[in-house]
Each structure stands twice: as structure tokens, then as C-alpha cells.
Design a protein around this nucleic acid. Structure first.
Ligand code: MN
Ligand code: MN
Ligand code: ZN
Ligand code: ZN
Lengths: 143, 143
DNA sequence: CTCTACATTAGACAAAGTCCAATAATTGAA
DNA sequence: TTCAATTATTGGACTTTGTCTAATGTAGAG
């Protein structure tokens, strides 16, 4: 896994490499996504990006996340029916999901192996294999 | 895996066993869920249950699905950010998800093995491991 | 600097799901 | 069987996540 780009020049180069016009808003959103390698929802990103000055709209956050996703810069993590999380790590990997807190943690793909995947129907191809390990505190309700 | 209950008496017994009052609406919903062992969304169930006569409200469908889920009669399948699917098969198993058509197919748990799951943080316990194999037609866009 | 293509925006809209307070059904005890 | 108490159902308001649109703003090639 390569290092994440931290600073403006690196982010700018990253966007240019993907033929994305590096607007102010896109750079701000990229910075939030790539600086700390977290799993964030659109709403969390909207708040973070407008922390200093309100300068990015909800529509732009969604536009940008969809653009970055389509370009393969980020990927979606579907673990919570209430909202999508965006993951700056596009290397194959899996997730630990704390169902109480909502916290999402990476599991390296090479730490983990799956065998016995079924043959696909003819003419079908695998887009990806997502493994989600749902965890909770052992003393929480039901425990 | 045991056979699914088809008819009214069996469904009635199933609900009673879980201390669920077997109302007309709950029996209709159970019948839709258990008769054909599909993965259905709340909206699909609402439509199916009201096919003959409109007799069950949206609120009741959601109430009932949440009740059945809390009782362990069904489980949720989280693969599509747009809606939850409900699965009458609560045995451990995994899913093939056709991202184009939305079709969900079961993968038997014993067909498949995962090794290398990480140690959990102390005091944490696994609720479940979900594996989703996302597939599409090899000649679809991008293919 | 100008022009054009592209990006951003507010706010309307849509869909999934929850909540509420009024009504209706179920149930078990009398 | 009756009846009161409990529990379930309901329409519709509400919330949240996300998309769309048409008006405005901006970037950057020439
Ligand atoms: Mn939802
Ligand atoms: Mn959604
Ligand atoms: Zn991740
Ligand atoms: Zn299933």
C-alpha cells in the first residue's frame, strides 16, 4: 500500500492524474478524505469541509463523492442501511464494523483468505468480494 | 437446514413459538417471507401482501419486519444503499449480489471458508461475518 | 482578456423509514 | 360469552439520505 497524499500539491497532482479539474471544493473534500484515512459519510464530510468557512454545498459534496467513486479514487462501504461510507483506501481489503458505535476498521486483504467461492453463472464476472465482520462489546445488551 | 413452513397452521405455530400474537397482517407477511425463500425489500413485501386485498399498511409492514428481525425469525441483508432486504434464512450463509439486476442469491456457509480473521479488540465479540460477492454480466458497461 | 465549457449552488424533490395519536383487534379472565 | 386491558394497526406527518434542476460562478485554453 502506498502512502496517502497529504498536502495540496500532492492532492492537486492526484486529481489532475484522473482528469479532474482541481477546484477549491474538490481539493477541500480530497483533503478531508485522504489526510486521515477514515471511513466517512457524506454528511460528516460536509461538516468537516465547512468547519473553517462555509464554502461547499451539500450538492457539491455528493457530486464530488460520486465523481471520485466513478474515477476509482475512493470506494463506497455498505455496512449501515442508514448511510454510505466513503473509503479512501481502494486496495482490496475488508472491514470490521462495530454495530454499536458505527466505527469501521480495515482488515488487510492479505491477512485473510476465502476459499470455496462458488462458480459464477456463465457470462458473469466478479466485481468485488466484501467481507464485513460485525462486532459489538460483549457486555452490551443481549450479551 | 430445515424446511420452510408453508401453510397457515405452521406459520401460526412459528409465530406463537416466538411469543408473537398471530394477527392477520403478521400471518400475511410471514407467508410472503417464508413461502418463497426470497430476499425481499419492505416495499416489495408491502405490494405482495396487498395484492389480493389492500389490508396491510406500510407502518405495519415495517413494524412487523423489525419485530421478526428482533426475534431472529428473519435477518437483514445490507448490500444496496437504497434499501434493506429481508432474508427468511437465518442460518449462517453468504450472498451473491448481481449489481445490475439487484438479484440476491445464497451461498451456503459450509461451501465457503474464511481464514485469517483478526483478533478482536478486547471485550468485543463477533455478531456475524457477512460475505458479499458482487457480480455483473461480463459484457455490461465497463466490461 | 474573453469565451465557453464545466462546476457550484439553493432549494425543490424523491424514496426509505420512523413516529404519533387515534382506532381497532386480540386475549384472557370472569 | 362478555368485557376490559393490553397490544396491534393505521394514515399521515415527519426525518434523513440522496438526487435533480436551472440559475449563477469560475477555470483555463487561446
Ligand atoms: Mn434507511
Ligand atoms: Mn439512500
Ligand atoms: Zn476501508
Ligand atoms: Zn440469504
Amino acid at each position: 500500500m502506498e502512502a496517502m497524499p497529504y498536502n495540496r500539491p500532492m492532492l492537486l497532482a492526484l486529481l489532475r492524474k484522473h482528469d479532474i479539474s482541481p477546484t477549491h471544493q474538490r481539493l477541500e473534500i480530497a483533503q478531508v478524505l485522504f489526510r486521515r484515512c477514515h471511513h466517512l459519510s457524506a454528511d460528516q464530510i460536509l461538516v468537516m469541509v465547512n468547519k473553517r468557512h462555509a464554502e461547499t454545498s451539500k450538492a457539491t459534496v455528493y457530486n464530488t463523492l460520486n465523481l471520485f467513486r466513478d474515477c476509482g479514487l475512493i470506494r463506497e462501504v455498505i455496512v449501515d442501511p442508514k448511510r454510505v461510507f466513503y473509503d479512501p483506501n481502494t486496495e482490496p481489503h475488508h472491514h470490521l464494523y462495530n454495530v454499536d458505535s458505527g466505527e469501521i476498521t480495515d482488515i488487510a486483504a492479505d491477512a485473510l483468505s476465502v476459499s470455496g467461492l462458488p462458480d459464477l453463472p456463465p457470462g458473469m464476472v466478479t466485481v468485488g468480494v466484501d467481507i464485513i465482520v460485525r462486532i459489538r462489546a460483549s457486555d452490551s445488551l443481549l450479551g
